[in-house]
Amino acid sequence: MRWFVWKTVVVALVVSWWSAAHAEPLELEPTGQFAASGSAIYRSIELPASFLVDPSPFGRPVLIMTGRLSARLLDPKRISRDAADPEVVRVDTGGPQEDFLSVRVDGPNLVVDRDGRTMTLKASPPLLGDRTLDELIEALPEYRRDAARYTPDPAALDKLRRLKQPTELLVFFGSWCPHCGQAVPRLVRVLESVRGAPIAVTFHGVPHDGTDPMANDLGVNGLPTMIVRRDSKEVARMAGDEWAAPEKSLAALIASPAR
């Protein structure tokens, strides 16, 4: 009987060591949806969500797992960049599970404590006002990744590249808006693909309560909405399902032969 118990314990230890040592690396990408003072935040590509905060006020990166909520300090050697996509960070979650921190949910925020030091991870405030394309991507890095996943229609891109007349695009969006999170990265991909064409774009962030004087003045009643201007005059507007393939809609709106 004693022999049986010992055998069971040894097998259990070997299995848990093996599974910890061979755990799948966690892939994360930068996110602008959450913020912690002075830190870069990475969010797992797969769900349920995990977060990496690096650097952290605790001297080492912090890995936060949701659900059975936990936060622990990581050896920086466990973090590597993906060779093919430097935006993606890989965390080796195997090995000894130690250096846990105290963690609690405080309303919408996550508070991590240790030895009197505190780190608060909170949802970022909405992005408001005018932003260039580069500023948008810097503030919302997930837009860049989602843009890379979109394949625009080559014929529509060709039409946009051949555009002659200077065209301004004013895009109303909400960084908090799930529709915009799907649609705007597609436009980002399109704009990156037609760099050099005479298209100037401004992204205008709208608050969650919709109280934006510019949006109200221009009669914007849904997000995202793109206003196409020429010589400072509105010539077209894109909204709703037209965002499913923005390059096609845009080409149809502004790149006809006469234009």
């Binding site: 769900l47 349920p48 969500a49 949701t66 659900g67 909520l69 309303g107 919408p108 949802a123």
Partner: peptide
């Protein structure tokens, strides 16, 4: 509701996307 969305993400940890 952004506040509830964040709190739900921390505590419930859905392995599926929850859209608002």
């Amino acid at each position: 509701d952004p506040e509830l969305a964040a709190a739900f993400l921390w505590s419930a940890a859905p392995a599926f996307e929850v859209r608002s």
